[in-house]
């Protein structure tokens, strides 16, 4: 039986889609069967980040409306046989996603996969609500920055009250924080909140910390999730997060600022 993981944040632009792509790829690389769904109706982007934008024929809404089968709409990743992508629809109809429809698709996927990753749109409207509603586990993506941290707390509140598990009085959705765009240098300089600060404010331990890196941008440019680059710190950090999702114990890396040379330190720049 599959586990449903929602990747959410409240605030936009913090790295939800990048994180969904990397967690999905990472879990698939670890031999799990993974389906990743783009819930951002009207603003499809996961396909682009995963590099399969030219292979989208049918989308999530087509499946819900019965215009094709789930099997027809799932795009198999070219690099990994056990990874499948379900693209968002480009329709402007905000009501295209129905609760019943989403539940039906998720149930069908659960029978075939080990993990179903739901890439939530920004905000707390319908799409975001449906992406988190059926989740067993949530990865809340947060930047160490005031508005992102505040919105994350709002989303954590919604997970605790407005999910199917909460409404049915079952065990809570398991919540994780994933800090992205982390710059140890700026933390050392006192201008960015540290991981410990974010953990203390939100009262949750982090699943992973992804360092700010130009490689993340390069990887979306080329449609290859950074986790496939074993040399890239951001890729290694995502691989650690995947291992922790699977219950492994991994020490946090990339939290320390790179040491400057003596000369630079003397100049204090």
């Amino acid at each position: 039986m599959a586990e449903i993981i929602v990747v959410t944040s409240g605030k936009g632009g913090v790295g939800k889609t990048t994180t969904s792509a990397n967690l999905a790829m990472g879990l698939a690389e670890r031999g799990k069967r993974v389906a990743v769904i783009d819930f951002d109706v009207g603003l499809r982007n996961l396909d682009l980040v995963m590099g399969c934008e030219r292979r989208v024929v049918y989308d999530f809404v087509n499946v819900i409306q019965g215009e094709c089968s789930l099997r027809q709409a799932l795009i198999k990743d070219k690099r990994n046989d056990s990874l499948f992508i379900l693209a968002a629809s480009q329709t402007r109809d905000k009501d295209a996603l129905t609760s019943d429809g989403v539940q039906r698709v998720l149930e069908e996927l659960k029978a075939d996969f080990d993990f179903v990753i739901c890439d939530s749109p920004a905000g707390i409207e319908r799409g975001a609500h449906l992406a988190m509603y059926f989740a067993d586990r949530a990865v809340v993506v947060v930047n160490p920055e005031v508005s992102s941290v505040r919105d994350s707390d709002r989303v954590l509140g919604l997970l605790a009250s407005k999910s199917q598990r909460a409404e049915a009085g079952e065990d809570n959705v398991i919540e994780h924080l994933l800090v992205t765009r982390y710059s140890p240098e700026r933390v050392a300089g006192g201008d960015m909140m540290s991981v410990a600060d974010v953990e203390e404010i939100l009262g949750l331990p982090v699943l992973g910390v992804i360092p700010e890196s130009e490689m993340v941008l390069q990887s979306s440019n080329s449609g290859v999730p950074v986790i496939l680059d074993q040399q890239a710190p951001a890729g290694q950090a995502y691989a650690d997060a995947v291992a922790r999702l699977l219950g492994e114990d991994r020490p946090m890396r990339f939290l320390e600022a790179r040491r400057k040379g003596l000369f630079k330190r003397l100049l204090g720049s």
């Binding site: 707390d153 600060d197 630079k264 100049l267």
Partner: peptide, 30 residues
Amino acid sequence: MGLLDVFRKRKPASAAQAKERLMILVAQER
């Protein structure tokens, strides 16, 4: 901190301010 920092006027670290404001706000909103 480098030697030259002694001569610079240092601003208070803004991250500490961010944390303090968020702790209050989050507690309130919760």
